[in-house]
């Protein structure tokens, strides 16, 4: 039928849909942590070079987000939280997302190599590979520890930032990695406790489904205990100091207390108050990471070390 409605149904994306493919909200975490990693490193970097480096690290993160959406389009279509993403909503075709992901991956790695150094660029390439292939394609659908593995990909940006300045890896950057790596599971599992997404229907083994919600609560508390020593240890290195240590001790005390409260509750109590404790803990976890990295930045500004 040849009328004005001939065009209806043909997926035609607007610019914002391609931006959405890059997961801008995840990117904001990448930008902030990569910037802190780069800025507090002992080697001075020209501010414009630092800006460009962080930009291309973020672009690499965005590219891996697009590859994730390309592969996970079937899962995204099933779950309420992700059904509005460009591919399941029918605005961007799957091969197009793959093309955007691969092209931006190549561009971001090449540009980071030219802006900073090739070690940092290789590190970024590895991170994209890790998130897109190891996490998304391989392990996300096969193990309930998927969040732990995905957390590693999110923990690399401060190490890449550090590598941009220093050209290598050191204890400080490994500890920044550990801070995000061990923070991710309790952060995400707290969300899984109250969001109750239908992961089972989507075919993703989520800890709350495979091992039960009580086991998830135990896992959350265990990870907060593992996380604390690494956060404190970071304060004892060359990038730490009295200010960072004060902030870290306070935040870890609050985080362990929150984890303990989650551990001590059962589902009946949680249902009764609408998952109030879990929601507060999730909010606290956002502040936890943000304030740790902000404290590193402030400590660098007032002078690091003991």
């Amino acid at each position: 039928m040849a009328d004005i409605h001939t065009y209806e149904g043909a997926p035609e994306a607007e610019f914002g849909d391609y931006v959405a493919l890059l997961k801008p909200r995840v990117m904001s975490l990448v930008v902030f942590t990569a910037f802190v990693g780069l800025w507090i490193a002992p080697v001075h970097v020209h501010p414009f070079v630092a800006f460009c480096a962080v930009l291309f690290i973020a672009l690499g993160g965005g590219a891996s987000g697009a590859l994730n959406m390309w592969y996970d389009a079937d899962i995204d279509a099933v779950m309420r939280r992700t059904a509005g993403r460009p591919i399941p909503a029918g605005r961007v075709a799957r091969p197009e997302a793959l093309a955007v992901g691969l092209a931006l991956s190549g561009l971001s790695v090449m540009m980071l190599g030219l802006v900073a150094n090739w070690f940092a660029a290789g590190f970024l390439a590895f991170t994209i590979f890790f998130y897109a292939v190891v996490y998304t394609i391989w392990l996300k659908r096969s193990t309930p520890q998927n969040i732990v593995i995905g957390g590693a990909a999110g923990a690399f940006p401060p190490m890449i930032g550090w590598a941009c300045a220093t050209g290598g890896i050191s204890l400080e950057s490994v500890l920044m990695f550990a801070l995000i790596f061990f923070w991710t599971p309790p952060h995400f599992w707290a969300l899984a406790l109250f969001m109750k997404e239908d992961y089972h229907k989507a075919g993703v083994p989520m800890l709350t489904v495979t091992h039960g919600r009580a086991a998830t609560r135990r896992h959350i508390f265990a990870y907060t205990l593992v996380l604390a020593p690494f956060a404190i240890w970071l304060g004892l290195t060359s990038v730490g100091g009295a200010f960072y240590m004060a902030v870290s001790v306070l935040l870890n005390a609050l985080f362990i207390l929150g984890g303990w409260r989650i551990l001590k509750r059962d589902e009946v109590a949680a249902e009764a108050d609408g998952y109030g404790v879990e929601k507060r803990y999730f909010k606290l976890s956002l502040y936890y990471l943000f304030l740790h990295f902000l404290a590193l930045l402030v400590q660098h500004w007032i002078g690091g070390g003991w």
Binding site: Y7, A10, E12, A13, E14, F15, F48, V49, C52
Partner: peptide, 27 residues
């Protein structure tokens, strides 16, 4: 409505390319 989406794509890509050129030059 499809024309508006196309324009948004074209203008967006144009701005990104200009920004990229300026960035490389400044770098």
């Amino acid at each position: 409505e499809i024309h508006r989406r196309r324009r948004s794509r074209n203008v967006g890509l144009g701005l990104v390319l200009i920004a990229f050129v300026v960035l490389v030059f400044a770098l």
